[in-house]
Amino acid sequence: MLFQLAIKGLLVALLAFTIVWVSGDRNKYRKLLWVTLFLTFDLIMFGAFTRLTDSGLGCPDWPGCYGHANPLQAHASISAAEAAQPTGPVTVVKAWIEMTHRYLAMGVGVLIIAAMVVAWRGWIKSRRSDMRFSPWFPTMLFVFVCIQGAFGAWTVTLKLQPVIVTIHLLLGMGLLAMLTWMAARQSEHAPIDASVANLRIPAAFALLLLLFQIALGGWVSTNYATLACMDFPLCQGQAWPNMDFANGFTLWRHLGKTADGDYLPFPALTAIHWTHRSFAFVVFAFVGWLAFRALEVGGLQKTARWLLAMLGIQLATGLLTIYLNWPLALAVAHNGGAALLVLLLVMLNYKARIPAQTAAKPAATRLSTAQFN
């Protein structure tokens, strides 16, 4: 089974390797990073689809499906489980959704291993003088993806425990952020005005705010609290509805249960939804202010415009999810919008540090020349 799963992961990665190979980009390492970044974004989107279709336990074991490498081989076990619980978590469709998500995750893992190998090879070949191939960040990324894989396994074995699923989501966003930074390091950028230094701290703070908001959004999704407030701007017709923050934000508990094992009360779901909705205004205001400030900095206008556009789209998908009674496509798009905001804010953070990196580059070059000549 493990061998068959590995083959499927390699097949997914092979498609990406083909794109890199036939690309006209002479810097194949850069192309590999951007393709890996694109597939990681796809993985996050498909992970949201898996979660929102309640397919996380479509195959209730890990890494295979009832001990097999694909749902076709496990068809008898899946059909028996579906017959026993027709409205339960295991169906043939959900099993395929879950395993497709795992295949894509394995493919991304193979690509990250390949990027690490290329980096180490280039680093050794250049006698540690070519900073483009500095292997420490790719190696850290490999460790990070292994941790992410472990949480993916625990998501299944711990039966969708909300804190584990939310951490799994955050690690996925962290993986996207790290790949964005790595790809940005390999790419050429327009000259940035030195005044960008004033945005370094606000940009970092905005990214932290966004990640906290994503954690709250993950908590809403994993606790199935999306429909707790079906009106806007009020919640259940009130500015301050009946809410149970203690049970709502108890982290270590089973899905749908309190820490004591009782059913999670509806006011707890209301507290979860209301907190995510309220904090969204804070994030929207601060990131919007940051984007308008970035519009005034030479070399950042394009990133700032994209950031403002995504903020508007994210607000729209969030509101429409409420007004249209949680359509699946909009819910998945809302998750994708959060991922794109992460990507854009990481890129903004990177560009905010370009002038300092450019200034430090001649000194680093002189040091490298002194060491290896």
Rank of each mutant, 00 (worst) to 15 (best):
G318N: 03
G318K: 02
L319F: 05
L319I: 10
L319P: 00
L319Y: 03
L319M: 13
L320H: 03
L320N: 13
T321M: 08
T321W: 00
T321R: 02
T321V: 02
I322V: 12
I322F: 04
I322A: 02
I322P: 02
I322E: 02
I322R: 00
Y323C: 03
L324Q: 09
L324M: 12
L328E: 10
L328R: 02
A329M: 11
L330C: 00
A331Q: 12
A333K: 00
H334S: 04
H334F: 02
H334E: 03
H334R: 02
N335Q: 05
G336S: 09
G336H: 06
G336P: 04
G337I: 14
G337L: 12
G337Q: 11
G337S: 13
A338F: 06
A338D: 07
A338M: 06
A338L: 08
A338S: 15
A339M: 04
L340N: 05
L340K: 10
L341V: 07
V342R: 10
V342Y: 14
L343T: 07
L344E: 08
L345C: 02
V346R: 12
V346D: 11
V346N: 07
V346K: 13
M347N: 13
M347A: 15
L348F: 11
L348K: 08
N349M: 12
N349H: 04
N349K: 03
Y350K: 01
Y350H: 15
K351E: 11
K351Q: 14
K351F: 07
K351C: 14
A352F: 07
A352D: 14
R353N: 10
R353T: 09
I354Q: 13
I354Y: 11
I354S: 05
